[in-house]
């Protein structure tokens, strides 16, 4: 085609634009993917209910009543029943969501920054730097993650802060691995070589050419870790190492209600159900995001 036939280029097309086409495409793909949409909606609902627990909770989650212990689901005034101390389950689930989501997101966010940085550095510079970082990470890999979390938490003592530190340490190694692998793959592509051939320094190459191409897979992997973190945090609380009673947290609730499973099985199952729904939504949503963000040739 002869370019001159098309006339001069309209000025609006000459302007620099920051890839709006790509994100519109991603948005379109998510809208077309029903499973991901439902999962994202559920997650939004769970997050909103945790954030607005103050407004939504019908009763004080800490108020006990010896008379109204272990009421079934649907008891008037206690929509989802009561626990072994007569506290309202619905209110505790709402407030517990705060803790659980915090324990799910915070350690992963910490580990994302630390692990992502270490992994990208290891992958980009290779050689001895890579060796040093990756072999150190391998040491942490030698322990099963649950054991590592329990050991660190146990050593630091119980409490939410320590549990977050412990979980962060657990999630750093897998994120370093993922970041390193993706970075190594991208680094060997010709466009990184071409960028170096144009005289750009490493910080510029990492910012412009590497980060946008490695962030997708790393973020998707991290979003999958949120569910693992919620479960591990629940496990720590269950063992008495995470959130301390009487505060509400799904794992802790599951722990205390477990003794009531023969009396009120449906009530006892509720916190577990919340953990299950939240983590499966996280997993499916991150899968959907990965598909939507893929660049198809």
């Amino acid at each position: 085609m002869d370019p001159s036939e098309l006339g001069p280029i309209p000025p609006d097309q000459m302007k620099a634009t920051r890839t709006p086409g790509y994100w519109r495409l991603v948005g379109g793909r998510i809208l077309a993917d029903r499973v991901t949409l439902v999962c994202l909606a559920l997650l939004a609902l769970i997050v909103a209910s945790a954030v607005f627990a103050d407004l939504l909770a019908p009763l004080d989650p800490l108020k006990t009543s010896m008379v109204k212990r272990l009421k079934p689901i649907g008891t008037p005034g206690f929509l989802l029943g009561t626990d072994e101390l007569g506290r309202d389950i619905l209110s505790r689930l709402l407030f517990g969501g705060r803790m659980s989501l915090l324990m799910g997101i915070w350690p992963v966010a910490n580990a994302l920054v630390v692990g992502g940085l270490l992994g990208i550095v290891a992958g980009f510079f290779g050689g001895r730097v890579n060796m040093l970082i990756m072999r150190t990470v391998d040491v942490f890999y030698a322990f099963p993650s649950v054991l590592l979390a329990v050991a660190i938490s146990g050593a630091l003592g119980s409490g939410m802060k320590n549990a977050i530190v412990a979980l962060t340490i657990v999630f750093v190694p897998p994120l370093v691995r993922i970041a390193e692998t993706v970075t190594t793959q991208v680094r060997s592509l010709d466009f990184v070589e071409a960028a170096r051939a144009s005289g750009a320094g490493s910080p510029t190459i990492i910012r412009v050419h590497l980060l946008p191409n490695v962030m997708g897979p790393i973020l998707v992997y991290a979003s999958g870790l949120i569910s693992v973190s919620i479960i591990l945090a629940s496990g720590l609380s269950f063992l008495g190492l995470g959130v301390e009673p009487p505060q509400a947290e799904w794992g802790l609730m599951l722990n205390t209600l477990r003794q009531a499973i023969y009396v009120q099985p449906w009530v006892a199952v509720l916190p577990g159900l919340m953990i299950f729904v939240t983590s499966i939504c996280c997993n499916l949503a991150s899968d959907g995001l990965r598909n939507a963000m893929e660049i198809k040739q």
Partner: peptide, 28 residues
Amino acid sequence: QMVFQDSYASLNPRLTIAESLAFAPTVH
């Protein structure tokens, strides 16, 4: 300057053509 064999691998898939072409001059 150099032109590579693999035309797809030698362009950053996340950048528009305009941005790919503008990269080297901005560096300089």
